[in-house]
Design a protein around this nucleic acid. Sequence first.
DNA 1: AGTATTTGACCCCC
DNA 2: GGGGGTCAAATACT
Length: 290
Amino acid sequence: MEGEWTLMHELTQGMELTKQLRLHLNSSTSSAETREFLVQRIQSSFDKALLILKWSGPAVAQPQPESPVSFYASPWNEDQKHVSKKRKILPKRTDHVTVCSENGLEGSMEDGYSWRKYGQKDILGMKYPRSYYRCTYRHIQGCWATKLVQRSDEDPSIIEVTYKGSHTCSQASRQILPPASPEKKQQPNLSVDTEDLGSKDMMSFPFSFPLASFAYDENESQFCTQPMVDFRDCTGSYSPSFISPATSEIFSANTSATNSPILDLDFSTDAADFCSFPFDGPGFFSSRIQ
DNA sequence: AGTATTTGACCCCC
DNA sequence: GGGGGTCAAATACT
């Protein structure tokens, strides 16, 4: 089974990386960046292994939408029905994603989830207003994921997306699945700057890749993604040179709402979902495509 | 008619 | 008190 092989591969790689990290920890010449890179790769390997386990069989695979979300103070059916204007305590995890949107992708659907806009504010010092989105299924399934969309001042083609909370709706659990059917309309490509690609085997992950990488913000106890991945229109000139015919299928991402195979992993709850994928190490995507 | 978006008001936190 | 996040009525869209 390919899944088993990949699982073994990831676990083995995790072990190897751990050994490397140990060597670096004992080495006075090792840089902090290198160690951090190894840490992230280790985490990535184990994340992937966990994901493979998680999705390898129906008995254990499907997380239930009603499964508790640790950072919410109380369950939906107790708290959420008491609608109040009181500011809710937000989850402690925030994901920052920077995407380059030149074709209006900054709407509610480009990341594989279905969002509903619930507000817009002019932010002090910001040229462009900030838009607030919540999961479409908030009231149906008690999914309290939200995101903030802010167009960059410096480069209006850059859309900064901040995710708050994680999806507990059923949509979250199917994000990892491949598209149910081929999309007919032209899809924008998801391009990744891979200037500092570490190793080719990092591309071996069979079913998914991140929209952006995650880093842990210790100050705020938050997970933050690093601004590394851009959306480009299909006609865009940029195309990562490493993409092979095989991998381009993975990277040619459908960014419409329901069948993006890639933009997922994401923001769901448990540790296994904090996937810092292989290409997310420091320097892995070292610059943003403009 | 049902759903999504807009937008002014409200409220909390710093 | 001001800024930012959310609510909800009004409006637009399908």
